[in-house]
Simulated assay, not measured.
Amino acid sequence: MSRSTALPERQRQLMFTMAQVNKQWRRTLDKALAPLGLTQAMWLPLLHLERDSGAMRQKDLAHSLALDSSSVVRLIDGLQTQGWVERIDDTDRRVKRIQLTSAGRAQVEAVKKVVAQMRTEVMQEVPEELLDPMQAALNTMLDRMAALESEEPSDEN
């Protein structure tokens, strides 16, 4: 798309492309992780738990995965059956915390290795000089979306 194309159209196309890249990245990872017996529903929560580096509240995991609590309960049940996560009692019995087990941490390391290989493969033709401007643009968009999310709803309706 050329620079002469109207700005709103270029912005629309960029947002569409970003959504497509996200979907395709997850499909690519699913295919690459299939030999480990993992689906996105399994590897994604494991990575979120590992990044949190400690016990994570079930509610926070649901939020980070953009899922409702009931879906996360079923997800955690499956991961617990595999021996990759454990539920920890909290002082507040209403709070459910989840953490990786040693088997779960080992699984995450296997996932991270595959993800790194795939990232290298996918990014090999992206010129290095584009990485910083792309990152800056994406961070600007994320910051704006976070600000919009935190704004009070308008009463204009």
Score class of each variant (00 low, 15 high):
M1V: 06
S4E: 11
A6C: 02
Q11D: 04
R12S: 09
L14W: 10
L14P: 03
M15P: 00
F16R: 15
F16G: 04
T17E: 10
M18Y: 12
N22A: 13
Q24P: 00
W25S: 14
R26K: 12
R27I: 01
D30P: 06
K31Y: 01
L33M: 04
L33W: 02
G37Y: 05
M42C: 02
M42N: 08
M42R: 10
W43H: 10
P45A: 02
P45V: 01
L46C: 01
H48T: 09
E50Q: 11
R51H: 14
R51D: 15
S53L: 07
A55V: 03
M56E: 13
K59E: 15
S64E: 04
A66T: 05
S69P: 04
V72Q: 05
V73W: 03
V73C: 01
R74E: 03
D77F: 12
D77V: 13
G78L: 04
G83C: 08
E86H: 13
R87Q: 13
I88Q: 14
D89F: 05
T91E: 15
T91C: 02
D92Y: 08
I98F: 08
Q99W: 06
L100Y: 08
A106H: 05
A106Q: 13
Q107E: 15
E109R: 13
E109A: 15
V111F: 05
K112M: 00
V114L: 02
Q117R: 13
T120A: 08
M123C: 05
M123F: 10
Q124T: 03
E125D: 11
V126A: 03
V126W: 03
E128P: 00
E128I: 01
E129R: 13
E129C: 05
P133R: 07
M134L: 15
M134F: 10
A137Q: 06
N139Y: 10
R144T: 03
R144E: 01
A146D: 13
A147K: 08
E151G: 07
P153I: 05
D155A: 12
E156W: 03
N157K: 08
